[in-house]
Amino acid sequence: MHLSPDELTALWLSAKIALCCMLACLPAGVAVAWLLARHDFRGKLLLEAFVQLPMVLPPVVPGYLLLVVFGNRGPIGGWLHQHFGVQLAFNWKGAVLASATMAFPLMVQPVRLAFQMIDRRLEQAAATLGASPWRVFATISLPLAIPGIVAGAILCFSRALGEFGATMAFVGNIPGETRTVPLAIYSALHQPGGEAAAARLAALSIALAFAAMLFSHLLTRRSERKLGYRTRAHA
């Protein structure tokens, strides 16, 4: 399959944004998942609903809100721009923020499930062996949740690759800056004679998403076996 330079640029941009989005969501996602899985606190239901919200909203709504808050005249965006010279709107960093907003729930859910599935008595056993809560988390809970964390990271990455609505609203469709693969497909469809390019990019998207899912299942299996959840004979 031959890709034009513009299409290649879109592909690399997509990969860069999705990777940055995954890396940004990883620590925050693990922290929120841990909070939701293991702690009861006031307003937990609200936090849960808030985390899930982007999944059920039309993506353009979070995009619009990002523009209001993080735009150059927004309360946070303006401050960042003024003090650090960082611009998010109409910029690839803003595309990372938009994808992160949309992909975050997909990171949290599997990690949370993984934490919930850990037998709490393992954590208690570690505590009765003198391990502080931090050490219990680092040496017992976190390693046992690795399959869920891998699944969450890959889901997050894939969702970021496919991000369209929020990105479009917040950072626009600027070639070489914010025009990722989905936006490039959209643009191609609106150009006379762009069908071939759209088809190529669509095929590429399908292949990428499929590979990510396959990779995720493979990794999950491997780590489950390593952790003793699954024995080779049964796998």
Binding site: Q124, T128, L129, P133, L227
Partner: peptide, 20 residues
């Protein structure tokens, strides 16, 4: 005094060995 500062050992019914 929380569990990790009591310095008591606890052996559970089914061992609760760390599987990883």
């Amino acid at each position: 005094v929380p569990a990790h500062q009591r310095h008591f050992g606890l052996v559970f019914q089914d061992g609760q060995l760390f599987p990883h």
